[in-house]
């Protein structure tokens, strides 16, 4: 199986380990990620106001490009997934906006592609049972917190990947890898998102990400998995502040779910880029005998 793949800007730059670990794991699970030969940034936020037609042009260009290569496009980043999937629905269902956007970008596209997330491919096409069979190094005893954030799940009627109040797709994958999945109260809450940018927002991001971390750590998570580079950035940063301000707070490694997947499939820590994380997961893995 070969799937057209859209990496997006962040996976091509600061989150290369997310991209590399996914590509390698996919091959081991029997499918190939075929990166689009030409692509642009999706815009990194879906234009919430229907009147902002311009904001649809960048993601529609990506979709039109992908349609030339096949009938599905797969992403890894939660934000790319959200933007592409929601845009695709607009282009499919709203012919007025479709005509304006497609006229502007000079593409003939009708919304007929399926936008998939890597997690969905693992669940629905490969199957978690098959993933489990492929595991070479079960991650026994590792208490991994499943952090979804916002973009993978909401709005439910557009995203539909899982129940948006109590999703389990991460936990189900983690179970297949031999981990002990930890769901926690704040697993679907926001990390602070784009407030990462801005002069007066640091305290708020620290509070939001800090709430997520304390909720996860309080539920026993020793490591957090995510599918969003911005979540990772905000959680990493908040832990620096928590460490400095809260006596006894122990930062927890935040890793991409594909790094944990790759680890269970036998890839090495350096290959997976685990040595480049802000909070090192290697001592924890060693302690667990993984």
């Amino acid at each position: 199986m070969k799937l057209t793949y859209y990496p997006g800007c962040t996976l091509n730059t600061v989150a290369k380990q997310f991209d590399a670990s996914a590509k390698k794991s996919a091959l081991e699970l029997g499918f190939e990620m075929d990166e689009l030969s030409e692509w642009n940034c999706c815009g990194a936020s879906f234009p919430l106001t229907p009147d902002n037609i311009m904001g649809l042009s960048a993601p529609t260009k990506v979709l039109a490009q992908a349609r030339k290569a096949g009938d599905t496009v797969m992403t890894l980043c939660s934000v790319c997934y959200n933007v592409l999937k929601r845009t695709n629905k607009v282009i499919r269902d709203d012919t007025d906006r479709r005509d304006v956007v497609c006229g502007f970008i000079e593409e003939d596209y009708d919304g007929s592609i399926d936008v998939l997330h890597f997690l969905e491919v693992l669940r629905d096409r490969v199957g978690f049972e098959k993933v489990k069979e492929a595991v070479k190094r079960p991650l026994e005893g590792l208490k991994a917190g499943a952090y979804y954030g916002c973009m993978l799940l909401r709005p439910f009627e557009d995203m539909g990947i899982d129940n948006c109040e109590d999703p389990t797709i991460f936990e189900d994958l983690l179970k297949a890898l031999g981990c002990e999945p930890v769901g926690f109260p704040n697993k679907i809450e926001c990390c602070g998102s784009h407030l990462a940018l801005g002069k007066d927002n640091e305290e708020i991001v620290t509070k939001l990400s800090g709430n997520v971390m304390q909720s996860a750590a309080g539920s026993g998570a020793e490591l957090i998995v995510t599918s969003c580079p911005l979540c990772q950035y905000n959680l990493d940063g908040a832990q620096e502040k928590l460490e400095a301000s809260m006596p006894g707070y122990r930062p927890v490694p935040i890793v991409y779910f594909t790094q944990i997947l790759g680890l269970s499939l036998g890839q090495s820590e350096t290959e997976l880029g685990l040595d480049t994380s802000r909070w090192d997961a290697r001592p924890l893995l060693k302690e667990k005998g993984i």
């Binding site: 997006g8 800007c9 962040t10 730059t13 600061v14 989150a15 940034c41 815009g43 990194a44 936020s45 904001g55 980043c77 934000v79 998102s193 784009h194 990462a196 940018l197 801005g198 580079p229 911005l230 990772q232 950035y233």
Partner: peptide, 15 residues
């Protein structure tokens, strides 16, 4: 230099 590109792009769009 260090932030994910998506933070910069989405932040620009919002602010």
């Amino acid at each position: 230099k260090g932030a994910p590109q998506q933070a910069i792009v989405s932040g620009f769009r919002k602010f």
